[in-house]
């Protein structure tokens, strides 16, 4: 079986910046795994995630999703890809339209892809809200009425509404309190098991990915400098960048 996602020699450049944000990156993500991409801010991990989803246009390289060339997709094929690959951003304050009700936010994907008509769409929204640990009646409220963790659950429900197979989690728990972070990580693990999801988990904190990632890639200055199974990276980090990230985890004197 081939990998769900194949990235080859991907390059992302911004007109104003001197250095490449992403500088020739290659990796595969297998179906059902949680592939973590870890690096300091400015290492290019967010640009990489957005380029894979075609939210920014890469300067060079290839991205294949389930065998199809993502960068060449147009029209209906591109819409189909957008349904199958979804994203959750870091700051749920910024990623939810403050003027829309939660129900409308969650059902936006359903409407865009005309997946369901009004009544059954509303029912789906109610189920989704419950699936992420909120209640169906939250649909009529606005994002600012929720806490950070609850907003992130709304963002997850929105992504799940179109029944995706692949989720890019771009620092999805970084803005959350330790306790809430743990709850959202548990939710993500549960959803992955139930829905057979594949995750690309982007983070700056190695400690966050230890429990959920199958493999970890360490990014530094636009390149992947190390990629290894999680336990191996934690027990024997080879690159200076990975060693620095590991050393940064507070060592609690248990």
């Amino acid at each position: 079986m081939t990998a769900l996602l194949e990235v080859r020699d991907l390059v992302v450049e911004y007109p104003a910046a001197a250095a490449r944000a992403v500088d020739g990156v290659s990796f595969d993500i297998e179906r059902g795994e949680t592939f973590a991409l870890v690096g300091e801010s400015g290492s290019g991990k967010t640009s990489l995630g957005r380029a894979i989803l075609r939210l920014v246009a890469p300067a060079a390289g290839r991205v294949h999703f389930d065998g199809a060339d993502v960068l060449a997709l147009t029209g209906d094929a591109l819409r189909q890809f957008r349904r199958r690959a979804q994203v959750v951003f870091q700051d749920p304050k910024a990623s939810l339209d403050p003027r829309m009700r939660v129900g409308d936010i969650v059902r936006e994907g359903i409407d865009i892809h005309a997946l369901l008509q009004r009544p059954s769409g509303d029912l789906r929204v109610a189920h989704l809200l419950e699936e992420v640990g909120l209640s169906a009646s939250d649909a009529s409220r606005f994002p600012h009425e929720f806490s950070g963790g609850e907003r992130q659950r709304i963002a997850i429900a929105r992504a799940l509404a179109v029944e995706p197979e692949f989720l890019v989690l771009d620092e999805a728990v970084s803005a959350l309190d330790v306790l809430v972070r743990q709850q959202v990580l548990d939710l993500l693990a549960e959803l992955q098991a139930r829905r057979a999801l594949t995750y690309l988990f982007i983070a700056h904190d190695l400690a966050v990915v230890e429990r959920i990632a199958t493999r970890v890639a360490v990014m530094h200055q636009g390149r992947i400098v190390e990629c290894a199974p999680t336990h191996q990276l934690f027990s024997a980090p080879a690159s200076p960048a990975a060693q620095a990230l590991l050393a940064a985890i507070p060592r609690i004197p248990w």
Binding site: H204, D205, L206, L245, A248, I249, P250
Partner: peptide, 10 residues
């Protein structure tokens, strides 16, 4: 802050 920067500041 990033964890690496957090470690330095702490």
């Amino acid at each position: 802050l990033d964890v690496t920067v957090q470690a330095q500041v702490l």
